[in-house]
């Protein structure tokens, strides 16, 4: 592989952008053996480097009415466990999509999806705030997603503006 990049890295770069690629296609793109690609992917899945395969959906274009919020959470870390145990209590809720430990003004960034404003308020007031180690929360609702996972949502359709033939 050129530039010292390992096959592993090249596979990850490709499928991070397009999870639908088959091992056969990846093998052609990278000039590798199909069996080697399949083996690499299996190993990456087993090692949990590849944690799953999802689809990036712009729900705004469907009639789905869901809502996303980012909640800043300040917590007291638990002795011997740091932030992990409280993070686990929070991420175990199905409606919680992401939990990150942050530097700066608060500890955990919690991204949550709900059906409605009420849904999310209920989660914060009934489930999140009452947790013993949660000191405070600040809930920010997402008004519009412009770009997610490197993909621009609802951008202008960009056709090929080049001349059809050029030297």
């Amino acid at each position: 592989m050129q530039n010292g990049q390992s096959l592993q890295r090249e596979i990850l770069t490709l499928i991070e952008k397009n999870a639908k690629l088959t091992a056969k296609e990846i093998a052609v793109y990278l000039g590798a053996e199909e069996s080697a690609v399949s083996a690499e992917i299996a190993a990456l899945e087993k090692a949990r480097v590849i944690c799953g395969y999802g689809t990036l959906i712009n729900w705004e274009l469907t009639d789905d009415e869901s809502l996303t919020a980012l909640i800043e959470v300040k917590v007291t870390p638990a002795r011997g466990k740091g932030f992990s145990s409280i993070a686990e209590r929070i991420y175990s809720f199905d409606e919680v999509k992401s939990v990150y430990l942050m530097s700066g003004g608060y500890d955990l960034a919690v991204i949550i999806e709900g059906k409605s404003l009420k849904d999310i308020s209920m989660f914060v007031s009934d489930k999140l705030s009452p947790l013993e180690s949660v000191l405070s929360t600040a809930t920010h609702f997402v008004l519009k997603k412009y770009k997610d996972h490197g993909v621009v949502f609802g951008g202008r359709e960009q056709g090929d503006e080049r001349m059809i033939v050029s030297p």
């Binding site: 090929d160 080049r162 001349m163 059809i164 033939v165 050029s166 030297p167």
Partner: peptide, 9 residues
């Protein structure tokens, strides 16, 4: 449909 260009896409 073209494969005729001499510039990056």
């Amino acid at each position: 449909v073209s494969l005729g260009v001499g510039e990056p896409d």
